[in-house]
């Protein structure tokens, strides 16, 4: 337990030294000594989950899996996106980085899932109660702005190096936008519409399920999209503490000053990032909506699902033409 040494010689500071570092050390030591079984359980669970997902992703031959992902891309978005996805995924395979890429993807998926499961309820609570919001906000600020390397250290003390501290730090880093955008989305729901829910006798749960969550969906999905993107960037940094995947390749290439390998791994991260971003932002798009598009939602070339075909004789005069569906 090293004394935190002042980096700059304190030149007879007039303020007493507040031993924040010692407190933190003490707190973490206490946690380590007393809550260790809990961390062990977390470690076992996390490891099992990520390895399971990795095995799943690697179960299919890379070419077949890439083709399936391209089909998914076609289904949710467009031909251009599908072709681009296929080309990118094949490039990863041809650079012989498929396996680390799937390790990273598995880590991102598990971290995202946990983040979303935590973030959405917390976001809802923060939207409903200003008090909760006031408590949650500085915590989120801390999670987002504390330099990522700083909480790699305690993660290693609790979980040693490897996959698990990587997942934990990724969750911490990726969670905040999920909470923030859920809170924002719920708070932005039209007051009168919520009032209508109350006026017809809906219970709070009916209002949340039937009105607030559906209307907040584009914003919440923008949050999920951000969670995924942050998870991906953190998953690479987690390579420094031994998390498997593209991050480790990057770390290796840095230690060997191997520019080419570093770029290959970096490019694979970019391809995964673009694929996940476009895919998830398509989910967030409100079908057939008029004006309210989030800034994340870009373009959707396929006509909106379920746009009703109105027979000419059924078209009553006075119906406003539908604002360009899905463009």
């Amino acid at each position: 337990m090293a004394e935190p040494t002042a980096v700059l010689a304190a030149e007879e500071s007039s303020l007493p030294r507040v031993p924040v570092g010692e407190w933190i050390d003490t707190a973490f030591d206490w946690l380590k000594d007393n809550v260790d079984p809990f961390f062990d359980a977390v470690a076992t669970g996390t490891e099992g989950a990520v390895e399971g997902v990795t095995d799943g992703l690697l179960a299919l031959p890379p070419l077949l899996f890439a083709a399936i992902l391209a089909l998914l891309a076609l289904f949710v978005r467009s031909v251009v996106f599908a072709v681009g996805s296929l080309a990118g995924l094949l490039l990863i395979q041809s650079m012989e980085l498929w396996e680390p890429a799937m390790d990273t993807l598995a880590l991102v998926l598990v971290a995202t899932l946990v983040s979303v499961v935590v973030a959405i309820p917390v976001g809802i609570a923060a939207a409903k109660s200003s008090r909760v919001s006031a408590v949650v906000r500085p915590v989120l600020d801390l999670m987002q702005t504390m330099p990522a390397f700083v909480y790699l250290i305690p993660a290693v003390t609790f979980f040693s190096i490897g996959l698990v501290p990587g997942v934990v730090t990724t969750i911490i880093f990726a969670l905040p936008p999920g909470v923030r955008l859920t809170e924002l989305g719920i708070r932005q729901v039209d007051r009168e519409t919520v009032e209508a829910g109350h006026a017809f006798g809906s219970s709070p749960w009916q209002i949340l399920r039937g009105i607030e969550l559906p209307l907040a969906r584009p914003t919440i999905m923008a949050g999920v999209n951000q969670v995924i993107m942050l998870a991906l960037s953190m998953a690479v940094i987690a390579g420094f503490i031994g998390a498997p995947g593209l991050g480790q390749i990057v770390v290796t290439s840095i230690s060997r000053l191997n520019i080419g390998l570093g770029f290959e791994a970096g490019l694979s991260v970019v391809i995964l990032a673009i694929f996940l971003d476009r895919l998830t932002s398509s989910f967030g798009e409100r079908r057939r909506d008029g004006g309210r598009r989030s800034w994340l939602v870009r373009r959707r070339t396929a006509p909106a699902v379920g746009t009703p075909v109105v027979a000419p004789e059924a078209a009553t005069p006075g119906i406003r033409p539908t604002a360009g569906a899905g463009i």
């Binding site: 039209d190 006026a199 017809f200 006798g201 039937g210 559906p214 909506d289």
Partner: peptide, 21 residues
């Protein structure tokens, strides 16, 4: 109170307050 709102008294809003989805 919710029961009374469900059965006895209903409301029409200025900006319609319909559910867009």
């Amino acid at each position: 109170l919710r029961e009374v709102r469900q059965r006895r008294i209903s409301m029409v809003f200025q900006h319609f307050a319909l559910l867009p989805h």
